[in-house]
């Protein structure tokens, strides 16, 4: 402990500078975190958080008993991995192109436009999906009919939905993520590129050997940051696109939608919190493990 006070005395300005942030998280995150206790109680308004009956792990039962948990976890994890990796790679590619292309006006305009989907609510995304894929007069089926081909009823088949959902998620986050990589590229010193140019390296080589390696820490960081939420799903995305269509659940059901359905008719704070805690715990273990591995490989890239 004395080490801590020595450190405090030595770096008191630094401590002061980070203090507001720490206080913020204590007040708005750590203290409210007592709420995880709801997961172990039968909530009643009389008792409140600590006066309600303690029921141990009973609230977790509905997750495990149904036998659906394996498939749900698999779906959630796979969707998130697809979102994270496809999303990040595409964002990185866009950022690299945008930073190297010459047309100033072109760059600015396209960058702005790529941000637009971020503003489109999932309700409207759902409307697009409906308009594209419905059997009666959806754009795709109308096209198929005009070409004299057999129309395809998307809503009775599970196969296409994985791609549809991943596409729309990646599409929505494209502009947002690109900005991060673009900012990171801007932090790369021009000297490297100049030197490489003199050495006769072409643009592909420069990207391959300068830009990409220097972006790697950011890439790893963003992946690590996302991994903690690997079991948490974009509820709105799935809900607006799939809705109550049980026919598609084999391919599209994630933990959030499952919990929503389980508790929609008879909501229970305890069970809701329990589900969240399960997701958190899974993410926690994963991120600590991966971070540990990253740390072994390349200390600088680790999150903490």
């Amino acid at each position: 402990m004395s080490g801590f006070f020595k450190e405090l005395a030595k770096n008191k300005v630094l401590f002061l500078m980070i203090l507001p942030a720490l206080l913020f998280f204590i007040v708005f995150s750590y203290i409210p975190m007592v709420g995880v206790y709801y997961a172990f109680t039968n909530f009643s308004f009389d008792g409140g958080l600590f006066g309600s009956e303690f029921v141990g792990l009973a609230n977790f039962k509905f997750l495990f008993e149904s036998g659906a948990l394996y498939n749900l976890t698999k779906n959630t994890v796979l969707y998130n991995l697809a979102f994270i990796f496809i999303g990040n790679i595409l964002q990185l590619v866009c950022a690299v192109f945008l930073s190297e292309l010459a047309g100033k006006w072109f760059k600015k305009t396209t960058q702005s436009i790529m941000f637009l989907p971020f503003f489109i609510s999932f309700v409207l995304v759902g409307a697009f999906v409906y308009n594209l894929f419905n059997f009666e007069n959806g754009v795709i089926n109308s096209l198929l009919r005009q070409l004299g081909m057999q129309p395809y009823d998307f809503y009775l088949h599970t196969a296409p939905w994985k791609y549809i959902i991943v596409f729309f998620n990646v599409w929505k986050g494209l502009g947002y993520g690109t900005v991060i990589y673009l900012a990171a590229i801007m932090g790369i010193s021009d000297e490297y590129h100049e030197a490489a140019k003199i050495d006769g390296a072409n643009i592909f080589k420069r990207i391959r050997y300068i830009t990409i390696p220097l972006l790697r820490p950011t890439f790893v960081l963003l992946i690590l940051l996302s991994l903690g939420g690997i079991l948490k799903g974009q509820f709105d995305l799935f809900w607006q696109i799939v809705g109550n269509n049980g026919m598609l659940y084999d391919a599209t059901d994630i933990i959030d939608t499952y919990v929503y359905r389980s508790l929609a008719i008879n909501f229970d704070i305890g069970m809701g919190t329990a589900a969240g805690l399960f997701q958190s715990f899974f993410g926690f273990v994963l991120v600590v493990t991966v971070n540990w591995i990253v740390r072994k490989v390349q200390k600088d890239y680790a999150l903490f």
Partner: peptide, 16 residues
């Protein structure tokens, strides 16, 4: 309540 949650889920997934 946990059986009910499971039943409601089945109801929505297969019953509807």
């Amino acid at each position: 309540k946990s059986q009910l949650a499971a039943v409601n889920q089945v109801y929505q997934q297969f019953g509807m």
